[in-house]
C-alpha cells in the first residue's frame, strides 16, 4: 500500500493507495508514527479515492489517526471514501466519531 503525506500551506494531506488489510496496516501505522514528532497543521485530510479495499484493519487505522490529530489539537476529515470502504466504516459507526466528506 502506498502512503503519500503532503504538507500543504495550512493542512496536511494523506493519501492511501491500494488495499488496506492487516498486512498493509502495519506499514501504514509505521508511516503515521513518523508524524508523531512533527507539528501537525490544524487541518488534516485523509484522501481515500485510491483505496481499492479495506477490512476492519482500516477502522483501527482511521481511529488511530483521528486520535493523533485530535491530540495535536487538529481535526481530521476523511474524503472520497469508496463504497466498499464506506460500508465497512458504517458498520463500525465511524461517521459518528469523525468527519466524512
Amino acid at each position: 500500500m502506498d502512503v503519500k503525506i503532503e504538507r500543504l500551506r495550512e493542512s496536511l494531506k494523506i493519501s492511501l493507495k491500494g488495499e488496506l488489510d492487516e498486512h498493509a496496516a502495519r506499514g501504514v501505522l509505521l508511516r503515521f508514527g513518523e508524524l508523531e514528532s512533527q507539528a501537525l497543521p490544524a487541518r488534516c485530510v485523509l484522501d481515500l479515492s485510491a483505496l481499492g479495499f479495506t477490512d476492519s484493519s482500516g477502522i483501527a487505522v482511521l481511529l488511530g489517526l483521528e486520535r493523533r490529530v485530535r491530540d495535536a489539537g487538529g481535526e481530521l476529515s476523511v474524503v472520497n471514501i469508496p463504497s466498499q470502504a464506506r460500508r465497512v466504516f458504517d458498520a463500525a459507526g465511524l461517521s459518528r466519531i469523525m468527519r466524512f466528506e
Binding site: 492487516e22 496496516a25 502495519r26 476492519s56 484493519s57 483501527a60 481511529l63 460500508r87 458498520a91
Partner: peptide, 22 residues
C-alpha cells in the same frame, strides 16, 4: 462482541461485527 479484541491497540475488535453484517 463489538470492540472486543485480544490483538492490542492496532486491531479494532470489529472483525466479527463486520462479518455478521456483510
Amino acid at each position: 462482541e463489538p470492540m472486543f479484541s485480544t490483538g492490542g491497540a492496532e486491531r479494532s475488535g470489529m472483525g466479527f461485527t463486520i462479518m455478521e453484517s456483510f
